[in-house]
Design a protein around this nucleic acid. Sequence first.
DNA 1: TAGCTATATAACCGAATGGATATATTCTGT
DNA 2: ACAGAATATATCCATTCGGTTATATAGCTA
Lengths: 110, 110
Amino acid sequence: MDDKLDAIFSALADPTRRAILGRLANGKATVAELADPFELSQPAISKHLKVLEQAGLIRSGREANSRPRVLEPAALKTIADWIADYRRFWDQSFDRLDDYLSKVQGYEND
Amino acid sequence: MDDKLDAIFSALADPTRRAILGRLANGKATVAELADPFELSQPAISKHLKVLEQAGLIRSGREANSRPRVLEPAALKTIADWIADYRRFWDQSFDRLDDYLSKVQGYEND
DNA sequence: TAGCTATATAACCGAATGGATATATTCTGT
DNA sequence: ACAGAATATATCCATTCGGTTATATAGCTA
């Protein structure tokens, strides 16, 4: 599971890959369509797509001549769930904020 | 802002660093305390801490001889907000799920 | 079958990453 | 002022990463 988080977070650490996901949020797209906005070679895009696919963030289809990609939301949920464990640290509605602030400001609490 | 996301996601892409954040969720800790669970050299831990700090995920304090670290929740919120834009893709309550599924399964929709 | 289109794979390169060991810095206590 | 503790910085090394160009593969169309 740690490996899964590693792969997802590091896939998301690249702005090109995040932009690709953004495009796929509008629906499936071919490699050429995904490459279009970037000044990168086609193989560079294919590499990014492979990273995203191995992280489980997208899937490849098959359609005539092309291999369209679609978003795979489960992987995004995986890290959303991970982050949710920290939500109390910024969201007042978890109302542990006071405890947290006392720690940050160095008032002893152990 | 893209740079900020790059730094945060890539800081989180390492299991040691995520474990350090997990420890800091229980309150501030010294470098020695943070290093304790790992079979890594002290400088290696200091490097990880620097990465976390430059991503804005933690802050350094000063206390007698030591430089305790505390969690900095704003950075986590930054990526939580980023992910929230995709929430509709897995959360039924956003009820665009049907649209999404039709795309995934390749039924034409453009 | 030949040629075109869409995409993948291979080989290579420089920069960045994650680790180590050795050394420097800073504060505490005597 | 000195010795020890806590931490940071410097240097080095192997590996990974993100890009390139060149080439291979697969499907479509004439």
